[in-house]
Design a protein around this nucleic acid. Structure first.
Lengths: 341, 341
DNA sequence: TCAAAACAAACAAACGTTTGTGTAAATATT
DNA sequence: AATATTTACACAAACGTTTGTTTGTTTTGA
């Protein structure tokens, strides 16, 4: 038998107070007597009263919940980011509801519909691969629901963003290879319709340029999704190409690992014959042998920052919100795949 | 300037209908004329009406949302499970809000408070390490909010559960080592206060017993959290122990990988000198060299099953709900770490 | 001692839906 | 043609809060 939930009304009836008095007492409103407040709270605890946030939300027109749209949550980068989001949301009293777009535009749009009826106070988004156009997000602007994009953002859409400087990170990574003596540095690139992967390639090129190394298109291999298997293919091409590289900067860790393995299997020593740098600092990168030098993309911190930014915008809603772009500092983590042994 | 949200009232005013007519029209209620229904829907679309689910939730006393409590979402097992949960929830029109207990009992309890005020329709839980006692969940039973536990469950608490047969999986894994010729099989075990890790150890022992192999306690190493580093320690102990094992069954993939690496570095060939089986089938296990034989723990499917079970219970709420325990089939994924080359 | 101020609580409306009931008009039944 | 039935809609209450306003009582200040 379900004992039905106890409400403010129940407390009011039991104590012969009005519901408004109970409500105010529970919120420590100054116009309620000290003694009354104490007793109301006591009884509330005794009876196991919990506020019904649905009712409260309706009345206050606020849900203290934020929606998060990610391509897939089982990708480590995103689960880490969500972890960061949840962490600051929890501490600020917000609730996090998650949605996977699975890189489908249709689903992303459908999620925006759901979010609109669900009345979240703000939304954090990492765009799906198919999304070229953010018009399905404009309505939130009209409804003054703040948005914060992270990692995969749209240049054309004005909103707050949390990103890393992919260009600078790639530059740093490539420069690291150069400084350790590599002169023929290859690049395994990600899908070029995504800004972040384009930026990584540009950073790579810029580093070569700075040190007067030739930029050779035959040393750049393209993938569509930076999978391990694609990495193997790319590495094999590099292995059998005209120019044998002595260093590779890969746009993620998976392709970096395939590269290491392909070259190692072909008899090359990593890093002595060929040094490899990845991107993301996935857990695997410190376990693989040799351990992988990589760029830490600060997923957790990105999530935290996005959430902080969003909550600030939610709570400053009366003020005009200036879109803000925060660039998170990345870190080059040097490990054995570039460390001369 | 925020154009304020349009409501049923607005539609009613514009069309000179009562709000009840609008509401019923939007829901295709038979007592509303075909023409009216059509026109209401048309105007609703034109004006960009979206239902306010908070109001609807309050009235219907139903939120079509489910809460998920996991220790940490950035653990691959959990992010995969959540992905499965989100997948079926999405298709059934439910929303998923996530909470991380971070293996803290205090936080787990605090989350139950939040969930109680947030009025979710049901909860999916993977218990934190500190949780020995589930009394903070009993109130949901009284409130008739269905619960489904997965993976880390409590034997003492009656509720629906989705688990794998850890005993059987461990048995299978160990048997696999035996059948390939291993006779001195070690085990790297997880925290024995958790059922699942205890079961894995028991399954290991049972397999040895079945094949009349000696169960030797000096071949069992214990860890507290099955970390990579702990795995290295355990493997080193096994390496320098009296009895040199020729096979290891590890309670997870990380410790399996450390074992492989420690033994390989000591000059042993994997799998010829020592075969290794892990547990979980983490992404890394098919990338590491040699690739790792392991038990696939079906995280995604567990999540899906938990969500299906929960939603069924939510929607059959008038009926008496029988607690149900579903055991997901695991799979032994045979790879190079046990495949004689 | 009396008005003014401060205190403590009640009243009532509102948030946007959903839904049981009531009621005219239109249609069907005889 | 009178009654019964159906159709199509309106009315109003309710869900559990929050909050502006009002009311009654007590305390303060001169």
């Amino acid at each position: 038998m379900a004992t039905s939930r106890i409400t403010i009304k129940d407390l009011a009836k039991r104590m012969n107070f009005s519901v408004s008095t109970i409500s105010r007492a529970l919120h420590d409103h100054p116009s309620i007597g000290k003694k009354t407040t104490r007793e109301v709270k006591k009884l509330a605890k005794e009876l196991g009263y919990f506020p019904n946030s649905v009712a409260s939300n309706l009345r206050r027109n606020k849900t203290t919940s934020i929606g998060v749209i990610v391509p897939r949550i089982d990708i480590h980068f995103h689960s880490l980011a969500i972890s960061g989001i949840e962490e600051v949301a929890y501490k600020s009293g917000y609730t996090v509801t998650i949605y996977q777009s699975r890189d489908s535009l249709e689903r992303e749009v459908s999620i925006t519909n759901i979010l609109q009826t669900n009345m979240v106070d703000g939304i954090i988004i990492c765009l799906g691969l198919e999304t070229k156009d953010c018009k399905h997000f404009t309505r939130f602007r009209e409804l003054s629901v703040p948005l914060v994009f992270y990692d995969r953002v749209s240049d054309d859409f004005e909103a707050s963003k949390v990103i890393i400087d992919d260009f600078e990170a790639a530059f740093k990574a490539t420069e690291h290879l150069i400084l350790r003596g590599c002169t023929k540095i290859a690049h395994i690139a990600g899908c070029q319709s995504m800004n972040i992967f384009k930026a990584r390639k540009e950073g790579y090129k810029a580093a070569l340029a700075k040190y007067n190394l030739e930029i050779n298109d035959s040393l750049i291999e393209y993938t569509t999704e930076l999978s391990y298997d694609e990495g193997v293919e790319c590495a094999k091409k590099l292995l059998s190409g005209k120019i044998r590289p002595d260093g590779i900067f890969c746009a993620n860790d998976y392709t970096a690992i395939s590269s290491i393995q392909v070259f190692a299997k072909a008899g090359f020593h990593v890093p002595n014959d060929i040094a490899v740098v990845g991107f993301s600092n996935y857990p695997i990168s410190k376990i693989i042998e040799p351990t992988l030098t990589t760029i830490d993309d600060q997923a957790f911190e990105m999530g935290q920052t996005a959430a902080k930014l969003l909550i600030r915008q939610i709570e400053e809603k009366d003020h005009v919100i200036a879109s803000e772009t925060i660039v998170i500092k990345t870190e080059l983590v040097i490990r054995d795949s570039t460390r001369t042994s």
